[in-house]
Design a binder for these strands. Structure first.
Length: 421
DNA sequence: GTCTATGATTTTCA
DNA sequence: TGAAAATCATAGAC
């Protein structure tokens, strides 16, 4: 027979009183004439029940007396056991919850964003990732990065301060309740296990507050991030140097303006933009060039001349360095440009034999001569420079069948469909 | 404020 | 999956 059964037997054995009457002081008093053990229990119960009717001093004295009673520990443990097996068993089922997946998600997100966990430079990694996702250049985004970092640091600070407050409040409240329960455990059947359970309940209640805090923080981060990304989406014109580099490549590879991945990376590095921006640029350029070759012809000529001049200068310097007395061994006083770029192919086609440039020319003279050779926009009409004829070996021109440069499509100043919006 | 240029995005297609 | 084509959205010139 366990303690509980013994107790129940003992209690029900108090003169056949129904259990419901155990709490009635009068009923308990009636049992005082019964046997010693039962009388003891009845005594204790009577004193417990009567304790609220007494003055504070009397109650304190009574409490002390009860605490010192020889039956007190047994009675306490039995009452605790009964309580454990009734009320707390129901509660216990609800308490054994698995960790909340929602709060786990929030934790993971806060950790990834650098809000919780160790300091990661105020989310610079997240900022960089966001910028990379948006295709921003590392240089022009530095200001926005710092903005993002500053805002994220603010959120982080607020989050940690609130979390600290929350933890403090939780700890204070838990301690208070624990003390209260410990104190009450002298007069009520409150076992340490129940106190632990109570602490867990308090923590769970507080964790819902914590979840709200985490949720709000996550929302703030998301809003900040979306604003940051929106800002990155704002169009910024590339700088002049970058556009020149891209145009040079485009026009010198006009027959096949599809840079390889390596070339894209190289161009991206040169221009201070991302590879995807290079891809975008070439995509836009190809389509716009194809739609309105006439409009781009002048630009094409300029870059052809520029490339020719550069190449001429490089070759001239090389020739001078190698053989200043006899600049060209093949054709005296002249040399033939050799380049894989189409600009040079185009220039070769001007005179049918290749572009001859005197190595001793200064740059201005070279430019002038090259310009004269190419004949500018009007004279190019018959030169074949950048005409589909000199580029027809590739599919991108074949498929589009653009009008020849000699007769630009539409009236001057006509707007191609792409810009009509 | 209008218009054009241009970088970015989305849709379509091979 | 990459490129073409269409479209969007904004910068910048006027």
């Amino acid at each position: 027979m366990d303690d509980q059964t013994r107790m129940m037997t003992g209690l029900t054995g108090l003169g056949g009183l129904p259990q419901g009457d155990v709490g009635d002081p009068d009923s308990v008093r009636k049992q005082q004439s019964l046997g010693q053990p039962q009388q003891d229990i009845g005594d204790i119960l009577q004193q417990i029940m009567a304790i609220t009717d007494e003055s504070l001093d009397e109650a304190q004295a009574r409490k002390h007396a009860l605490n010192c009673h020889r039956m007190k520990p047994a009675l306490f443990s039995v009452l605790c056991e009964i309580k454990e097996k009734t009320v707390l068993s129901i509660r216990g089922v609800q308490e054994e919850d698995p960790p909340d997946p929602q709060i786990m998600r929030l934790d993971n997100m806060l950790l990834a964003e650098g809000v919780s966990g160790p300091e990661k430079g105020g989310g610079s990694a997240a900022a960089a990732a966001a910028a990379a996702a948006a295709g921003g250049s590392p240089t022009d985004s530095s200001i926005e990065h710092s903005d993002y970092r500053a805002k994220l640091a603010q959120i982080r600070q607020i989050y940690h301060s609130e979390l600290e407050k929350y933890e403090q409040a939780c700890s204070e409240f838990t301690n208070h309740v624990m003390n209260l329960l410990r104190e009450q455990s002298r007069t009520r059947p409150i076992s340490p296990k129940e106190i632990e359970r109570m602490v867990a309940i308090i923590h769970r209640k507080f964790s819902s507050i914590q979840m709200q805090l985490k949720q709000s923080t996550c929302e703030a981060v998301m809003i900040l991030r979306s604003r940051f990304l929106d800002a990155r989406r704002k169009r910024r014109n590339f700088n002049k140097q970058a556009t020149e580099v891209l145009n040079e490549y485009f026009y010198s590879h006009l027959s096949n303006p599809y840079p390889s991945e390596e070339a894209k990376e190289e161009l991206a590095k040169k221009c201070g933009i991302t590879v995807s921006q290079v891809s975008n640029w070439f995509g836009n350029k190809r389509i716009r060039y194809k739609k309105n070759i006439g409009k781009f012809q002048e630009e094409a000529n300029l870059y052809a001349v520029k490339t020719a001049v550069d190449a001429a200068n490089v070759s001239a310097q090389a020739s001078q360095a190698n053989s200043p007395a006899t600049p060209n061994s093949g054709s005296p006083g002249s040399y033939r440009l050799s380049h894989t770029g189409d600009a040079y192919l185009g220039l070769r086609s001007i005179n049918g034999e290749g572009l001859n440039i005197t190595p001793s020319l200064h740059q201005e003279d070279t430019l002038h001569r090259a310009t004269h050779l190419t004949g500018g926009y009007e004279e190019l009409s018959g030169s074949g420079l950048y005409t589909p004829h000199c580029l027809d070996a590739n599919s991108w021109q074949d498929t589009t069948n653009p009008p020849p440069v000699t007769s630009p499509p539409g009236p001057p100043g006509s707007v191609h469909s792409d810009t009509s919006n």
